[in-house]
Simulated scan of single mutants.
Amino acid sequence: METVQVVVLALIQGISEFLPISSSAHLILPSQLLGWPDQGLAFDVAVHLGSLAAVLIYFRSDLWQLTRGCQQALSARQFNAELHLSLLLVLATIPAVLFGLAVSISGVDEAMRSIAVIATTTLLFGILLGVAERFVRGKPMSAIGWRDALLIGLAQALAIIPGTSRSGITITAALLLGYSREVAARFSFLMSIPIILAAGSLKTRDLIAQAEPVQWSVLFIGALLSGVSAWLCIRWFLAVINRIGMLPFVVYRVLLAALLFLIYFS
């Protein structure tokens, strides 16, 4: 991979992983517009590890509180808020893991990566994100129960379809359930930790099985750029989301879908 390709793809992954704009929709553009070859499995693993590191570092205090709270609950044999939230995150992760395994086994994942599919999902789920804005009621994180966690988790499973956007669909689901924008985003980002970890583990297993030669300098640069850009995006998004709302991302997705349709039909 050339240096410019490494930089551009790593930044695309880092920026689009946590914003509700679909990383798959953006990663298809360089190959279509610039004729770049596929970046390979090793690079995919590296940039996903960078994204995982970003969310772990940003939410390190939240994760530490959850860990301590779970330890205290287990020691005292008493249910508490931290254990409750941790179990909700586990529950919300299960549908995506099961759906992902089913899609992988069936072999239909490659068929879903067409420009037509990505453009359609980018448009439809972008519009749904705009509709969800009308349902914002400001419910706090403490109001999330088993039903809502499962519903948001089922929405996350849809992100297996390229163009949907994992963060976009989970934030949409939380907004439709009446949660505030900040709560929807924070819960979505916390949900990303186990799912990115699971996806990265599967990709790492496949990488080991392929035994391809590895360019360690390329992987390091990719992981670093992806991680830094992802951390900055998380910080910026949570700082401005209550002010700007979801409309800018809805408009952006509609325009992106139009560009993808133009490429598809040209």
Rank of each mutant, 00 (worst) to 15 (best):
S75D: 15
F79H: 14
A81F: 09
E82S: 15
L83N: 09
L88C: 00
L89P: 05
L89A: 10
V90R: 07
A92I: 03
A96W: 00
L98I: 15
S104M: 10
S104T: 09
S104C: 12
G107I: 05
V108C: 05
E110I: 10
A111Q: 12
S114C: 12
I115Q: 11
A116D: 12
I118Q: 03
T120E: 06
T122Y: 04
L123S: 01
L123Q: 06
I127C: 05
L129A: 06
G130P: 05
G130E: 06
A132K: 02
R137A: 15
R137W: 12
R137Q: 15
R137F: 11
P140N: 10
P140D: 12
I144R: 03
R147H: 07
L150Q: 02
G153M: 01
G153E: 00
A157V: 08
A157E: 01
A157T: 06
L158P: 08
I160Y: 06
I160K: 04
R166E: 03
G168W: 05
G168V: 11
T170L: 02
T170C: 01
I171W: 00
S180L: 11
R181K: 14
E182M: 14
R186A: 00
F187Q: 01
F187M: 10
M191T: 02
I193L: 12
I195V: 14
I196M: 07
A198D: 08
A198H: 07
K203W: 07
K203T: 06
K203H: 08
D206W: 11
L207M: 15
